[in-house]
Design a protein around this nucleic acid. Structure first.
Length: 263
DNA sequence: ATGCCGGGTACGACCCGA
């Protein structure tokens, strides 16, 4: 089973590119972030035509996440628990059966948090604390659980072309990293770092020729429960898509799992 | 280079992203 995360930076602007890649690559489950669309305007039929079931958690103008799946949804939930006043659409989770069991896939668009002297940064830190409590609950289920998406977080110097330039940014500073590392301490495995020591950037800014200079960062992640990590075969960062016409600034990151085999 | 691009809303600039 192939499970993908991809921040598409606007479904309206990216529909042709996303459809073309899905036709070529045919992944099983796709987690999209920054759809920048309300549910009613999301072009679900364009993906149903390609064989996908579609669930969205949209918002006008900004944010918004969606799940596409060849497998039917057994269950869907939206919003991160822990703050009823939070109206930003940043999480959607689906459960799927695959013959020999089930997998839970949680798609997140973690807040950026800049500038760090604003309430945006405290919102990010509180969001991460809520996420950690949510993941701790999920891990008690002791089932295959894939937490994936745009984490807006650079895990280490290795994940950054120019660490000195980024250090201190909301994506790469101690308060953010401390909360991200808590996920690993709970037992969640970074799928890319479990399988490679190469930098594996997932984002290159539109500005300043960042792609041409390979001035990238790794901020889109698949984090796996032990029961999911035991079935991980490989991870692919589809960096070639950054060179397509009208690309997103992020590229798809894909995990391949063999859920047919016993752990 | 805390906005150089690119996308959103809405139709003229302004907000937002990482």
């Amino acid at each position: 089973m192939r499970i993908v995360t991809w921040n598409i930076n606007g479904i309206k602007a990216r529909l042709l590119v996303v459809r073309e890649w899905l036709k070529q690559s045919k992944p099983d489950i796709v987690a999209l972030q920054e759809i920048k669309s309300i549910d009613e305007n999301f072009p679900g039929e364009a993906f149903e035509e390609l064989g996908y079931n579609v669930q969205t958690h949209g918002q006008k103008g900004f944010n918004g996440v969606a799940l596409l799946s060849r497998l039917p949804f057994d269950d869907v939930s939206r919003q991160l628990p822990g703050d009823a006043s939070d109206t930003q659409a940043r999480l959607i989770e689906g459960c799927f059966s695959h013959g020999s069991g089930s997998v839970r896939v949680c798609n997140i668009y973690l807040p950026n948090g800049n500038p760090v002297d604003s309430e945006k940064f405290s919102y990010k830190l509180h969001w991460m604390e809520r996420l950690n409590r949510f993941v701790a609950d999920r891990l008690r289920l002791e089932e295959p659980f894939v937490l994936l998406g745009d984490f807006n977080l650079i895990p280490s110097d290795l994940d950054c072309h120019d660490p000195e330039r980024w250090w201190g940014d909301a994506l790469f500073r101690s308060e953010s990293l401390q909360r991200f590392r808590h996920l690993a301490n709970l037992g969640m495995v970074d799928a890319v770092r479990a399988t490679t020591d190469s930098p594996s950037y997932t984002f290159w800014d539109f500005q300043s020729g960042a792609w041409r200079k390979n001035n990238g960062i790794r901020i889109d992640h698949l984090m796996l429960s032990p029961q999911a990590a035991d079935h991980l075969d490989s991870v692919t960062v589809h960096r070639e898509l950054r060179g397509w016409d009208r690309p997103s600034d992020h590229v798809p990151v894909e995990g391949t799992f063999d859920f047919a085999l016993p752990a």
